[in-house]
Amino acid sequence: MEISSVITIARQELTVAIRNKWTIIFASAFGALVLVISYFGTMTAGEIGFQGFNRTTASLLSLALYLIPLVALMMGTQSFLNEGGDEMLYSQPISRGEVLAGKILGLFAAIMVATFVGFGIGGLIIATQADAGDFIGYPVFVALSLILSLVFLSLSILVAVACGRKAKAYGVSLLVWFFFVIFYDLLVLGGSLLFNERTANQFIFVSLFGNPVDMVRVAGLLSLRGGEIFGAAGAALLKFLGGEAQGITILVISLGVWVIVPFLISIRLLRTQDI
């Protein structure tokens, strides 16, 4: 794989995405929501004479869990199935893998820049208003959000390549979003009722690895607040993962697998496709 051609495609993709009105709308909306959450979150606590970090970042994490997968899926689908553009690209003397990698990198850069608006505003408000010992959690939280966008970009190519048609791909993308953000957890929750307490715990812990949204949420709360936040279940989880630092590392590595596997499958599919 030629790195320079990947970079060229990525730069091109970034410019196109930045000029897309949806990216600008997303950046503004995300920024506004983060502004509201962090401003009101730190304000209510201020009434009593101290200001905290806890609930505010937990709410920001929630926001990221909803929005970032959705935006990554939509931007990915739109970019891969835009009419007229990519046939030119595929006709160049570069491999299809390079095209995919470049496009993902470019889109990732676009999402990163768009979310940086919101994360920057939120961070400024928290830094000036809130009173918390552990600000290091914030960069970790931003990094996890970005990893989440990368996972869903990777899934979005898989959807785009597998579906081929734009309308179908959008529909499937929405299903993928709904499945991972809400439905998967409901299934596991329901399923866990079939087992006794011990087996149910194991079942839930293993099931975390099947859902990147869960992994980001758990890794985020672990790094923001530590395992105590989950109470007794947290102690069991850390025992299962082998400690806090190791647990976060395992979750991040598994998220990496969630980026690479859909990407490799997409390349295989695309290789055999007639464009």
Binding site: D185, L189, N201, V218, G231, A233
Partner: peptide
């Protein structure tokens, strides 16, 4: 054990 789903959608 349900607390693992704290803050989840």
């Amino acid at each position: 054990r349900l607390r693992i789903y704290l803050n989840s959608p």
